[in-house]
Design a protein around this nucleic acid. Sequence first.
DNA 1: TGTAATGTCTCTAGTAACTAGAGGTTCAAG
DNA 2: CTTGAACCTCTAGTTACTAGAGACATTACA
Lengths: 138, 138
Amino acid sequence: MFSIGELSKRTKVKVPTIRYYEEMGLLAEAERTRGNQRRYDKAGLERLSFIRHARDLGFSIEAISSLIELQDHPDRSCSAASKIASSHLADVRDKIKRLKLLEKELSRISSGCDGNGLSENCYVLASLADHDLCSIEH
Amino acid sequence: MFSIGELSKRTKVKVPTIRYYEEMGLLAEAERTRGNQRRYDKAGLERLSFIRHARDLGFSIEAISSLIELQDHPDRSCSAASKIASSHLADVRDKIKRLKLLEKELSRISSGCDGNGLSENCYVLASLADHDLCSIEH
DNA sequence: TGTAATGTCTCTAGTAACTAGAGGTTCAAG
DNA sequence: CTTGAACCTCTAGTTACTAGAGACATTACA
């Protein structure tokens, strides 16, 4: 059994974040000492590692909640887990796509001004003011 | 002079968002009718178009605030504008980089489970539980 | 056993950029 | 003059935390 600080160190999840996960129902309510401090065991550590890993991969709290639910029921079909993962993947791909468009446009705009002139001649400002100066839809 | 609804239609910025921009100081406080309703002119339209365009490109409200400040002072150096644009571009590139890593890992994990098995054998769940199943740092 | 330092507790509020809704007022058309 | 759409302000909710206040618990050391 170890404290929340210790759990935090081992998982690299900050203490308030651990409490937040508990409040959100991702972590079961921890046992308490007589003085009301949380104590964790290996199971708590593993669950938090799972959460942390999923968060690192960009899954939402809600998605993680469902994934944990499934993990707790080994006998269920994993089609939901598979769907969650692939829909998240689709989201990520979509984001990349949109960011690449932004990148293209931003780099074009940005390279149009070296910062040595006056605001009235600034290509960055002019581009923002006039959508026609854009090369692409966005 | 036209109403906030009209401005909304022309710029495709929602009415509450327009009010929000005003509250945040991006838009000057609009003139009002005797009945206290906002009225806008061409200048208001242009400013909102500028904001909308900048938001579409992912600039933060704060950044846009600075950009507008510069636009209102044609005699100032535009080095700040140039910096804002290039730092935002760097942010976008960074995000793309990180998302690509995620995408790689997610697609690997996702393709490991077709959703037809049981939760206990699910590669998605197993991967989240065990960081060692990851192919990359993230 | 006393004490001091560190850790922990709960609660509230703040972050970014909106969105939704309640309850009331004004406008424009007919 | 009435009616319905548009508008007003204000509050609260969204996501996933983070920061801070004020109080209590634990641990190490003398």
